[in-house]
């Protein structure tokens, strides 16, 4: 991120990119208005997003859209602003300016839990497992609006809570089975390996019934076998209709698995397009390899 400052040279291209995106917005929004929220074709829209930390501009007028049911990769070298963008979308940071729209609703600056409530659910680069709770307990925290979240009901009036909890338990087991970690259900989450934690985290995110999943470096620190499995799961979920935005700096992984790739560099969107387009884009080659081909 320290190299964000001396980048005036690329200003002009990004600006032109920034102009085209709102145009596309206008078209899509007309469609969106006529349809209900879950039918929105472009659930996530980010416009002119900007976030500075002191003198460093981490995200500089970034804008992009994610189509429903798509799998999009957000890549870029270290310090490109991927994670900051991600955190601005999910409410961890409040952007200085710009708009984040999800399912036609402006969610800019909402708290993380409010963003999650709206069906935009994230995972973390370093898995945030609840280490002193069992895997099953980790899972059962996730489903939204549980009746047991009310203190009085959860302690004293339990019949309806229990009924709901049994359903949730069933779903939790199914989801654990889907990720092949049901044998760990009663293990403390803190006892899991790094890769298993990533699986657990994705399983937990799924259990919230999300419309869209934002995965922050899901493959970091995961061994190749597990990575393969994780990818299979993601593809399978995507075939079920989930929308994915994946932040990753392993370019090849994204190129092979995503149909659309957004490349960030020094806080700006360098380019976006199919893996083919991006692979042949000279700016991208320059950003990644520093000029060498």
């Amino acid at each position: 991120m320290s190299d964000a400052e001396p980048s005036d040279a690329t200003d002009s291209e990004t600006d032109s990119g920034g102009v085209t995106v709102p145009d596309a917005d206008a078209d899509v929004e007309l469609d969106a208005v006529s349809e209900s929220a879950d039918m929105v074709d472009v659930p996530l829209k980010v416009r002119d997003l900007r976030k500075t930390f002191g003198g460093i501009t981490a995200v500089d007028n970034a804008g992009f859209e994610i189509k429903k049911g798509s799998m999009t990769g957000l890549i870029g070298p270290n310090g490109a602003g991927k994670s900051t963008t991600f955190n601005c979308i999910t409410g961890t940071y409040t952007p200085d300016s710009g708009v984040v729209e999800f399912n036609g609703e402006d969610i800019t600056g909402l708290e993380p839990y409010e963003v999650a409530e709206r069906g935009l659910v994230r995972t973390f680069q370093i898995a945030r497992e609840l280490s002193e709770m069992t895997v099953l307990e980790n899972m059962m925290v996730a489903p939204m609006h549980q009746r047991g979240e009310a203190l009085w009901r959860s302690v004293f009036a339990r019949n309806d809570v229990n009924k709901q909890e049994e359903e949730i338990l069933e779903r939790a087991w199914e989801t654990l089975e889907f990720f092949d970690i049901e044998h760990l259900a009663n293990e403390y989450a803190g006892n899991l390996s790094g890769g298993q934690r990533k699986l657990l985290e994705m399983a937990r995110a799924l259990l919230t019934d999300p419309d869209m999943l934002l995965l922050d470096e899901p493959f970091a620190g995961v061994n190749p076998t597990l990575e393969e499995r994780l990818l299979e799961h993601i593809h399978e979920l995507r075939n079920q209709g989930y929308t994915f935005l994946i932040v990753e700096h392993d370019m090849d992984l994204i190129m092979e698995n995503c149909e659309k790739v957004i490349v960030m560099h020094q806080g700006r969107i360098l380019t976006e397009g199919t893996p083919e387009d991006v692979r042949n884009n000279e700016d991208v080659i320059e950003a990644y390899l520093g000029g060498e081909v």
């Binding site: 999910t90 409410g91 961890t92 708290e111 993380p112 839990y113 999650a116 409530e117 659910v121 994230r122 995972t123 973390f124 945030r128 497992e129 609840l130 280490s131 002193e132 709770m133 925290v141 996730a142 939204m144 985290e201 937990r204 995110a205 259990l207 919230t208």
Partner: peptide, 10 residues
């Protein structure tokens, strides 16, 4: 255990 995780599930 993790406030972030709790927030991330709504």
């Amino acid at each position: 255990e993790s406030e972030d995780a709790v927030g991330s599930v709504g």
